[in-house]
Amino acid sequence: MTSSTAISYRSKDTELRKAIRRFARRKVAVIGAALVLVFVAIALAAPLLITQDPNDQNLAEILKPPGKEHFLGTDELGRDIWSRVIYGARVSLIIGIASVLVAIVVGVPLGAIAGYYGGWIDEIMMRVLDVLLAFPGVLLTIVLVVILGPSLQNVIISVAVYSVPGFARLARGEALGLRNAEFIEASQALGAPGWWVIATHVIPNIISPVIVMGTLSVGNNILTAASMGFLGMGVPPDVPEWGAMLSNGRKYLLVAPHAATIPGLAILLLVLGLNLFGDGLRDILDPKMRE
């Protein structure tokens, strides 16, 4: 029979290959992916790339423009900007990725539960999230950092808290669409408890849009953390965080424009890369967006 030969290929890798090919057709998305990869590589290889300790101060050589000795110049305390930007990639990626992972782990199950059960459970959970959403994002994270105290871990937690409602809403909407699917009903007919249906059928089927939103949120969360750093509410001052570097350099914008511009460019490129990459992922993972 022809139908049996037609399906005798190994589908898993062809599906993946097809997806990669679809992704590769989008030049902008490939540029985004390349940018992200470069930053990830920089973050991983940071100790090999730096020219000196990012926290070494040299007060005799403050605000030096880019030159032979200091590749990208020095800041107001004579610290090497190249080394600080390199380490800043680590800080930013850790904040972005960790906060998104925390937000997914918390938000997606919450949203899936609300959407799957509906009724008063949904009503209560969504109203609580509405309250969270009613706060302007940066304000909420600042309040949390003030309460928890400034540290890398607390910045991650507060940025994560602020992105939980987004993931919960996404998961709820998707779960709402799935709860009447016949394969869910089949599982119920087998006597499966609610948590089983949510864990094995609902969540695996909403993971594609979650991945897309996750990628886009990494960039967004890096920006939020940088804004907090800029306002002086983020990580402690010795941590080379791009937002804080931008803020410190701003005061010397006229005499040493590189001190603010370089960390700003780093933020721009990484966030831009993440957004382009995320848009490309959406195009290949979300069938509703396919032309």
């Binding site: 699917a181 016949e182 394969f183 009903e185 089949a186 007919a189 059928h201 695996p204 089927n205």
Partner: peptide, 13 residues
Amino acid sequence: IIFQDPYSSLDPR
């Protein structure tokens, strides 16, 4: 139960 639509009754994942 055996369902009508063999497309939506099997988990695609």
